[in-house]
Design a protein around this nucleic acid. Structure first.
Lengths: 286, 286
DNA sequence: CGCGAGATTGACTCGGGTCAATAGTAGTGG
DNA sequence: CCACTACTATTGACCCGAGTCAATCTCGCG
């Protein structure tokens, strides 16, 4: 039961892409197996009982940028945990439009939506070269009987994902475009921080289009909003390099000041409220 | 906003209910206990192994309209399955605004979002008198060790919920107001059908405000959209009584015809004029 | 009965989508 | 090396869908 045969052939050929995969699936480089404790660590979940399970090993597999980990409708048999790299999960609506659902990164789990119908309900695409850990679902449930705390780990992960999606629904239902982008940046910063990277300066791994799809906005609105944040000094923007300048303002932002009265008042950093007097009646310092 | 009416509805813990679980009068308000098989049936999940578990009984509890089943931040200890009645689950944002997340009804599970942090992440409110089955989480996980297929049931239910929320995110991110309302109606109709009720004529259990919150719209937009659907013959509307006239059109609707050219072109599509001239005629509810 | 919550409808506004032009960037091959 | 192409990002002009504000209207209920 230990060494699974090769997971079924992944058709990792993006429809419009030309990357010749040629058995690109898994080179013999880096670590190829993890034990249960490492998996739990990765998930930020501390198992109640220390599991001495060196014999319980989970296989790794690598995906290159653009490759699909699983596609919609594909038979479900395994969950994945991201060990390194960045991905997106998407829904495809009846007219072929992509709807981005999440941007999984280190420590996130993929494939949970396949459990219910035994077919994946979403598609996962690597946005960078990735290293994933395979959790064959059958093996997992079998293990649950021996290591009881494992099922609690699973419940926790799924519940966490559920809460995350609830927050997403709340955001999409209630917040303005600026607030969505602001919270997206804060959320990314937090996740990078949790991974040990800088939360003040990082690279977006996704396009404006993908961000827009994720946030229920158009790419133009995303671009404009980032420019506006840059203009008032909340962030710096250079293509996909984002610098966070005022995380607190981003966290609480609801709507942006009217418009062209921004300029560089941001450098004042809300020392005093500007009283919104508009720019056409600029009175000198009182 | 919610007003302060119905003063007694706050803090409605089961212990304050008028039915004491100890005195198991059997015809008090219907059944007070269910075994595992009944629970699985309710969830529409067939356990792999028939469980002879008459000794495994789950307690019921009743909630009256307006009462809260659980609130945000409350310590998590039990899951609930709706046996009868209608509820809403809501998030409260930092300014006290409600965001409706779901409208659970018969066969749905409540409280899953509490597993992760051990505190409920949402609030559940009864929209009608309800009968819920209690699943103490500790008991559930303990049972999972004896009845292994139970954990598969749990995984399935959580995964289903996840898929549902994904679909919700896709809808909020991509669809127009009309399409959202249309799909909401279709979804309700399907759920009523699954419960054995009519999918052609039913009563909304929630206000326009709650529908709007759920769909990321204002109550005015919901009301206007329902009126428009009524105008073109897709549905009939009388307050909270909805009659579905053209489910297929609702399912595939993306955007409404420009505007005032509607009128009776709907009847052109279907030769069936609705009870000839009397257009303000509405169905009587039995 | 009147009261108050819910629902409908109209008028107006504006946030953000759409369309379009331009520019920066990366990959490829001569 | 540069040119060529495709993709990505920025920015402007325009406008429509849906939010906001507000005035009834209806209904259930004490």
């Amino acid at each position: 039961m230990q060494s699974q045969s090769t997971p079924e052939q992944r058709n990792a050929t993006p429809s419009t892409m030309h990357t010749s995969p040629m058995e690109a699936g898994r080179q013999r480089q880096g670590r190829l197996w993890s034990n249960l404790k490492e998996v739990c660590d990765l998930l930020h979940i501390t198992p109640a009982v220390s599991v001495n399970s060196e014999e319980l090993l989970f296989q790794h597999v690598q995906f290159k940028t653009g490759q699909r980990v699983h596609t919609i409708g594909q038979a479900f048999d395994t969950l994945y945990i991201v060990n390194s790299g960045f991905l997106k999960t998407v829904l495809i609506d009846e007219f072929g439009n992509e709807q981005v659902l999440s941007f999984p990164m280190k420590g996130d789990m993929l494939g949970v939506d396949g459990i219910h119908t035994r077919h994946y309900a979403s598609e996962a695409v690597a946005l960078s070269d990735c290293d994933l850990i395979l959790l064959p679902f059958k093996k997992l449930t079998a293990l649950g009987r021996v290591h009881a705390e494992l099922e609690n780990v699973m419940y926790g992960v799924m519940s966490r994902e559920l809460v995350r999606e609830q927050a997403m629904i709340g955001m999409l239902g209630a917040l303005s475009a600026e607030a969505r982008v602001a919270r997206f940046l804060v959320s990314l910063a937090d996740r990078f921080a949790a991974m040990g990277y800088s939360s003040k300066l990082f690279n977006l791994r996704m396009t404006r289009h993908e961000i827009g799809s994720y946030l229920g906005l158009t790419l133009e609105t995303v671009s404009r909003t980032l420019s506006a944040f840059n203009e008032i000094g909340l962030i710096t923007v250079d293509q996909r390099t984002i610098g966070i300048k005022d995380a607190d303002a981003l966290k609480t932002l609801r709507r942006l000041p009217p418009s062209r009265s921004r300029a560089k008042q941001a450098s004042a950093k809300q020392k005093a409220e500007v009283d919104q007097s508009g720019d056409d009646q600029i009175l000198a310092t009182a």
